[in-house]
């Protein structure tokens, strides 16, 4: 096994997801199958091969620091699941 139920639980916590015990078992089996499949990359010797994160030779795209039109407060808050006046409302963060 590449991955266990315990590891899946830890990864779920990192990804801010939760699964029932039954879902976790199914997922462990599926992820194990996928991880076993991707192991085939180890057949390749990649010593000294530069990683590609991006295919275009573009880096650090800057623009002049000048103000441009932006969203109004109402537009920006328009899709908030919960708002209080001009704020997003969330559960208490500090105990």
């Amino acid at each position: 096994m590449k991955i266990t139920v315990d590891m899946v639980e830890k990864v779920a916590a990192l990804g801010r997801l939760e699964y029932s015990a039954e879902e976790n078992e199914t997922l462990t089996r599926q992820l194990d199958g996928i991880l076993t499949y991707v192991e085939k990359l180890n057949e390749l010797d990649t010593t000294g091969v530069e990683p590609t994160s991006h295919v275009l030779p573009i880096s650090n795209v800057f623009r002049d620091d000048v103000p441009r039109p932006s969203l109004s407060q109402d537009d920006a808050l328009g899709n908030a699941p919960d708002r209080a006046g001009e704020f997003y409302r969330v559960p208490k963060i500090i105990e």
């Binding site: 990359l41 390749l44 990649t46 091969v49 590609t52």
Partner: peptide, 14 residues
């Protein structure tokens, strides 16, 4: 083992 390895293989594919 996974992410960086895959980025390297991406280079080979390209």
């Amino acid at each position: 083992a996974y992410y960086k390895k895959a980025q390297q293989v991406r280079t080979l594919i390209k």
